[in-house]
């Protein structure tokens, strides 16, 4: 995984496999506290405490197509090398919250990558799911709620190629503004 946005795609894919139809991605960059936090919340089927405990074991997977599951272990490794860690909280029947945090200035912290693109690809590939992006940069905040946007777009689906480009640009512009 070259950057953190790829981990985000990977964890959202897990949420989708768990039957989630609501997914909230929070990216929280706090330069003053030298901290970067990524939170992915879903309303999927959740996991038992036993399953959660086994997550950091790469040879644990709920999948049947292959015997290894590297998603969480790789994300945890990235967090650890970037001066942070990863935790998973889950309740059966309610959903799962994956939180990864990093030391923002750590030289071994992988770059964030294109979060706007990662988020939009997930939304466009699953146009009937409810996706929320909350991006915090110090005290500034940007919120993108797919339900609000869906209301405006009406008949035009999220998987329309032009819409994907327009919405990605829209999120990118707002994220640039957060840094001003």
């Amino acid at each position: 995984m070259n950057d953190l946005s790829l981990h985000i795609i990977d964890i959202i894919q897990n949420s989708l496999s768990a039957g989630a139809f609501f997914i909230r991605l929070t990216v929280d960059e706090n330069i003053k506290e030298d901290r970067l936090k990524i939170i992915i919340e879903d309303n999927g089927k959740g996991m038992t405490q036993e399953q959660v405990a086994k997550l950091s074991d790469p040879f644990f997977t709920s999948r049947t197509t292959r015997r290894v599951g590297m998603g969480i272990p790789l994300f945890k490794q990235s967090a650890n090398q970037g001066g942070g860690d990863l935790k998973v909280e889950s309740t059966v029947g309610e959903g799962t919250v994956v939180t990864a945090w990093f030391q923002h200035s750590n030289i071994d912290r992988p770059p964030l990558g294109d979060v706007a693109n990662a988020f939009l690809l997930m939304l466009s590939a699953n146009p009937n799911h409810h996706f929320v992006l909350k991006y915090i940069y110090n005290e500034n905040e940007y919120l993108f709620d797919s339900e609000e946007v869906k209301e405006i777009l009406g008949d035009i689906p999220f998987n329309d190629a032009s819409i994907i480009r327009i919405l990605t640009d829209m999120i990118r512009e707002n994220l640039i503004d957060l840094r001003k």
Binding site: M1, M70, G71, A118, S124
Partner: peptide, 21 residues
């Protein structure tokens, strides 16, 4: 596009972006 860990790590996101464009 297959988007599991294996797919993403080997470039599925780039492929997906190319397809959409």
């Amino acid at each position: 596009v297959a988007m599991a860990t294996c797919g993403i790590a080997s470039g599925a996101r780039t492929v997906m972006n190319t397809l959409v464009e």
